[in-house]
């Protein structure tokens, strides 16, 4: 077992955690905006939301992540870090990966939220409009808070999927857990199953509590009708 101490497992998982957290926050924000667009009374917004979700949701994640690096950076020259800095490649790839995860995961957040919006009775929005609230206020103050509470459990599944999806970032050289795993397998081919187990255990440690905690939160904040 002590061969494990020759590798920076904690460091690699720390990158996984950071990828997950930043991507989750971004996906939550962008996914909420997308959901707002999809239920908006403005046809152009609805059309954009629908087109975006259907296009991105149905594209393989690997393609999107490679697209950020090969497309956005190598071809279009979009740099998300200071190019003169010594850690440019590392920072740029990390941020490009986050961008890709946000673009992708937000579509699932959007669709979860939209199903949550459907659980809010029509009368809630009617009462809000009848009181003089504008569309955006009705959405943000009355509908979305209730929709969010209804979809915490499905959002937990999205978050767990995202945590595991971060392994795709290894395709553009982000030093997260699975990239370290590849390196370990190359060096210690005889300990293959042990390495698998160690990495898998690391992911379970991250995702299991997330699921349990959010399941508890979902019960706690459920809207009683």
């Amino acid at each position: 077992m002590d061969f494990l101490s020759r590798y920076d497992l904690l460091g690699a998982f720390w990158v996984t955690v950071r990828l997950t957290v930043f991507s989750a926050i971004g996906s939550l924000v962008w996914g909420t905006v997308l959901a707002g667009m999809r239920v908006s009374p403005v046809p152009v917004m609805r059309a954009f939301g629908t087109a975006y979700v259907n296009l991105v949701r149905n594209t393989p994640l690997t393609l999107i992540i490679l697209g950020t690096s090969l497309g956005l950076y190598s071809t279009l020259g979009l740099a998300l870090a200071d190019e003169t800095s010594g850690t440019f490649l590392k920072d740029n790839n990390f941020r490009l990966a986050v961008l890709g995860f946000v673009a992708y995961t937000s579509t699932f957040v959007c669709e979860s939220l939209r199903s949550g919006i459907n659980t809010v009775p029509v009368g809630q929005a009617e009462a809000a409009r009848a009181l003089g609230l504008r569309f955006s206020q009705t959405l943000w103050i009355v509908v979305l808070p209730q929709a969010f509470r209804a979809v915490i459990a499905p959002l937990a599944s999205v978050l767990i999927a995202l945590t595991k999806n971060t392994t795709v970032a290894s395709a553009i050289g982000v030093a997260e857990a699975s990239l370290l795993m590849s390196e370990m397998i190359e060096n210690e081919a005889d300990k293959l199953f042990l390495i698998f187990l160690a990495i898998a255990a690391g992911f379970v440690v991250l995702t299991l509590p997330t699921g349990l905690f959010l399941g508890w939160v979902a019960k706690k904040v459920a809207v009683k009708r």
Binding site: A127, A128, A130
Partner: peptide, 30 residues
């Protein structure tokens, strides 16, 4: 609409807010 009060068959109180918050909401936000 802010000048026209409406009461519904199904009450339609905001389920995630307390009674007093329901009553305060529109005066504060609108």
């Amino acid at each position: 609409r802010a000048e026209v009060g409406m009461v519904f068959q199904q009450f339609n109180l905001f389920a995630h807010k307390t009674i007093v918050e329901n009553v305060m909401l529109a005066p504060v936000r609108v």
